[in-house]
Amino acid sequence: MPDAATAESPILQLRGLRKKFGDLEVLKGVTIDVRQGEVIAIVGVSGSGKSTLLRCVNLLELPTDGDIVFDGKRVPYESAGHVFSSASRDISRLRAEIGMVFQQFNLWPHKSVIENVIEAPITVRKIPRAKAIADAERLLDSIGLLEKRDEYPARLSGGQQQRVAIVRALAMKPKLMLFDEATSALDPELVGEVLALMAKLAEEGMTMMVVTHEIHFARQVSDRTIFIDAGLIEEEGPSREVLNNPRSERTRQFLDRVLHDRGVE
């Protein structure tokens, strides 16, 4: 839901973001501005650090160095991760504003579809149960899965599970959505329904950061593409330029490989 007044100010700024796992530096200083309503595709080979980058944004991984500014406020991630500190509440509040969709869906198997969707609005946002259910039903209806409201996730296809996972994140009315290889674990014939939902969200003005191997999707849906290589931004720009006429040799090699593999399929 883009807000006209803030349409030009970045909703998220990453400044010189670094992340080390022991001696291994996975992110070596990444700077990105994400504007309201913008859809950013993040591509790169496995192990290039793109998933880690995404997970640093909502602090599932704590950065080693650098700044994260979300909605105009610097995120005090240094004190996060301490269960008993008050900063961990700030972190939870930040995460409530940022939706995330995982490769493995991560729906909760002991809860029905509707319970998965209303859980966070009720426990985190303290929305009354009746309203949470009404909202969830509207969302489920919008993706054509309302009749599955009382099913458990195990009874849904991978594509349906992932769409429920997206709706579960949307139920929190996030200002930013992160997609971490949302279609990589899906059977090929189920990829389309998830990409279609993501494209619909993009069209409705949702701000999105999408880590993906789906180059065609990135080209058609994303405004900007960032190519990450060995923990650094190798190339970035409007998606059509980066993905059609990459300036960097590494980007070109990567695209050749990815597009070729997809072609052979």
Partner: peptide, 8 residues
């Protein structure tokens, strides 16, 4: 992680 990511 999915619970934490939702703000829990």
């Amino acid at each position: 992680e999915s619970a934490l990511a939702l703000g829990m």
